[in-house]
Design a protein around this nucleic acid. Sequence first.
DNA 1: TTCGATGCAAAGCGTTTGCATACTG
DNA 2: CAGTATGCAAACGCTTTGCATCGAA
Lengths: 146, 146
Amino acid sequence: MRKNAVEQLSEYLAGQGLRSTTQRDQILQVFISAGRHLSAEELYLRVKKPHPGIGYATVYRTLKLLAEAGLADERRFEDGFTRYEYKASDDHHDHLICTKCGAIIEFENERIEALQQDVARKNHFLVQNHKLELYGLCGDCRKKNR
Amino acid sequence: MRKNAVEQLSEYLAGQGLRSTTQRDQILQVFISAGRHLSAEELYLRVKKPHPGIGYATVYRTLKLLAEAGLADERRFEDGFTRYEYKASDDHHDHLICTKCGAIIEFENERIEALQQDVARKNHFLVQNHKLELYGLCGDCRKKNR
DNA sequence: TTCGATGCAAAGCGTTTGCATACTG
DNA sequence: CAGTATGCAAACGCTTTGCATCGAA
């Protein structure tokens, strides 16, 4: 866990005139330690174990908050629901997604990003954000298929 | 409109033991002539004008059918609902999406696709499909912003 | 003590489905 | 005729919201 994620949240909250709460801290900690690409439901279930009183809505609200605070990225994959991932400061990456087992592999590729900028420039477009997903079969599923 | 799209649908239906209906043909024709990236609702509204009797569900069901028949691509953008686009046989492309006015610009870039294959190969991954979306400001909106 | 945050349940919203009826093959 | 397709409305699944209560500042 990044050493000052909780602080980063506190600062954001303070700056917005919002309040720090135990629930928000609990959710943030579980979120960070739980691994990537969680749906709201997955996070809710994980948070619920140590903190049974927590409500579904609070998880949703906190996740949106984390996204606003720059601590989480919100992504919709093709499975229809929104997943969140903890956002380390400047670590941008894209995804390989196995259509059979659901595995999600991350990758980065600077050359692709550079080409994206070329495309944008040619279209007088200013890129703020992008999303690249490759759907297919992961190594394991390819083996099993044979 | 591609000259034999209706035939292509008929063939698919026949092959699957399904039936050709006037609604399916009407929806397909409106879909093709209506331009790209339609949501089910947009298509429903457009089909409704000339064919008021048509039902919402039929549009949804037909759209899924067209996707199965290979005549349409189903995509979820970040605005939360599914959009469909008419699929010319081998015309693959990606999207620039303006976060301000909603404009969708298409592009193709072979070098990016080649690099995607490299990434996949390194991860023992077999790509079946991919999705690249660049979100940002289009030329018009950049001008207006100043 | 004020006003934002929480938890619950209900509402929203796009999409899907059950069912009686209409129509294709 | 048999069985699929349609249209309507109700159901769905994920997400958001209203409201009374709780708790941070």
